[in-house]
Design a binder for these strands. Structure first.
Lengths: 364, 364
DNA sequence: TGGTATTGCGAAAGCGATAACGTAGCTTGA
DNA sequence: TCAAGCTACGTTATCGCTTTCGCAATACCA
């Protein structure tokens, strides 16, 4: 039994510290915040104040502070779907960078629902977040959100996602390069008959990755067989691509198409493809190589471990924070600041799911 | 270029709505919050106020509201390590339940570091979170934290973790039952020589799971060969158990121990074990069955998909929120409330990593 | 010696909202 | 007929903190 009557001892306030230490609240504030004016405060006074603050167990009331100073020391982080494995390390990166700056993150998860996204945005704005980070890869949000943000002068950045007519900063992986890296790798291993599972149109990543593939193929004289090119269906469930990868690969096998490698849109698709291949008795990587994209946590743990293109997710999260913090500081110092649209370099991670094409394989 | 000089239009305040609509701030407050007194406000007045609020794009200032009402409408959620796959669905459950209640979650990630934990706790208390949820499975935090919390009368709950001398609510899976379910399953499949990989002592889950195993073994007359019982090392890295599972299983195989099944402490350990078995040419499940615990996202995607004991993680998150909310409401209504220590029922999820013991196998 | 800087601190005005209390006019019942 | 209660709002006092302004005193310089 918890009795609320346990004398919910009114929190000790700054005024308490002031009267106890014999100074005014103003001085206490200046000392405890180490404000510029603290230069002029006598060391003895500082000590007295700090000591009594500690003795009383004073804890500043953030709300009062925020109300007065108009700074909330928090930034909103809006995820489109937190169960997407892509998000985990981004969270880590964001959280860590904010922690360094003594900011707190208010995470929100839109569950891929537009109205939920907007409701959360509203809640975050009411709380006067000083900045906003939006993590998504769906082409969902339209311009009016941006309008609201820039009118209110809230520094924002998107991760894995970009708004057209960029008035808003963004951090993305260089998808085109990433796709090229993977394909180049397969090509170097001797693969010529490669099946491609493209991403859904809805995803902003899909087009540039395909472009990277086409450019490399063109440059290297690699022929892309249209019959080996598939495209994932539109879906809101981030984990559905495993299913799709499985089914599409199964279809290819049933149609007796010849290929020695599958380049999948992302890791989950690749894992689905591997599952289908294995089930059909096609060994990976002995008979068929598979590549993914993202390097989510699973990929190194899967059997076989997945060769994939890593997005530097923690770094992307940290960079987004830095961009936003720069915006915040700029506004504070009444400087100008720039919208930045940064493309991060992906990294090819070679594991066990790719191998040089076998001579006994179907590579005519 | 972003010019800060874009007339950062001072946010429209309640006073603006008041003067514009011709009523007093108090009335505006009552109407917009639909406070009890709103019964007495003329419908026409309500409409006028609501209309002008909408017209001006009024958005309440949460900080001012919080300062006055002493309610922050947010609860802190303290994770020990957010990269632990165990956490993802808990986050989802917590977030969703809070969303229903129009509360916002302030997530914090302690990175398994005690000082970081304490710093975050401090930050959360400064923000006057109305409740606190701590997600962990390490026996890390000691009593003085609890003392602080209950003195400040902040309803709290832990997930996957329990404090001794329980003055604080907790939500855990019934580990003993879960372990029994898994072992029972293996036993029914005919397995008699079973290797066990126990959890590290540091984890609170380890002991009850082992107890469940022992009890079932005793009841069923199953003999546990001490040579087949291993224990994971203490480690702070949630993903290290894959490595350990791999290595330990490798050791068992090298020592030519006979066993037809491995019951691993958790899913990652199980996946590591499977990897070692597969690498050594022992097929799962044909030659050896493997079970895990948790049912993290990977488990259904792995090859073979993992038979495991599911923790109802979303439900656990939601329940923790409900417990905390009940505490908050109780305090508000000056009711008493109870500390609850809830054990949730685990569920056996049978997939492809377990099979009836083969006659040709090594089961003498 | 007088004037300017530097040092050391307090008084008071809010930040934007809510809650307690007032103040009317009007209805109702005995 | 008049106290009591309901209806429909407005006044005012904070909530706990920051910040600007202001006032002294002491130090410095010419």
């Amino acid at each position: 039994m918890k009795r609320p009557s346990e004398k919910s001892q009114a929190a000790v306030t700054m005024r308490d510290v002031a009267t106890q230490s014999g100074f005014s609240p103003a001085t206490v504030s200046i000392v405890l915040n180490n404000a510029p004016l603290a230069r002029y405060i006598a060391p003895a006074t500082k000590k007295r104040i700090e000591d009594t603050a500690k003795k009383l167990g004073y804890r500043p009331n953030a709300m009062a502070r925020f109300l007065r100073s108009k700074r909330s020391h928090s930034v909103g982080v809006l995820f489109f779907d937190i169960t997407d494995p892509f998000c985990t390390l981004i969270m880590r990166g964001v959280e860590n960078a904010l922690y360094q700056a003594s900011y707190l993150a208010i995470f929100a998860d839109a569950h891929n629902q537009r109205n939920r996204f907007e409701r959360y945005l509203e809640l975050l704005l009411e709380r006067h977040v000083e900045g906003l980070i939006v993590v998504a890869n769906w082409l969902f949000v339209d311009i009016h959100v941006l309008a609201d943000l820039s009118k209110r002068n809230i520094p924002s950045a998107t991760i894995g996602w970009e708004l057209p007519g960029n008035n808003i900063s963004s951090v993305m992986v260089d998808n085109e390069t990433g796709a090229r890296l993977a394909l180049e790798h397969l090509h170097q291993l001797g693969h010529r008959k490669i099946a491609f599972i493209r991403g859904p149109k809805m995803l902003i990543d899909s087009a540039p990755r395909w472009r990277g593939i086409q450019k490399f193929a063109h440059g290297a004289g690699l022929e892309i067989d249209p019959a080996l090119v598939l495209q994932l269906p539109e879906s809101l469930d981030p984990n559905s691509s495993f299913e799709s990868g499985y089914r599409y690969t199964e279809d290819l096998l049933e149609q007796r198409k010849k290929f020695t490698a599958v380049m999948a849109f992302d890791d989950l698709t690749a894992l689905g493809a591997i599952r289908a291949l294995t089930k059909a008795g096609v060994k990976v990587p002995e008979h068929c190589s598979v590549t993914g994209f993202d390097d989510i946590a699973l990929s190194s743990l899967a059997a076989p471990s997945l060769t994939t293109v890593r997005q530097p997710m923690e770094a992307m999260g940290a960079l987004a924070v830095n961009i936003v913090m720069d915006g915040i500081n700029a506004a504070l110092e009444k400087r100008d600041w720039n919208v930045v649209n940064q493309k991060m370099n992906p990294e090819l991670v070679i594991r066990d799911s790719t191998r040089a094409v076998s001579l006994t394989g179907g590579d005519d």
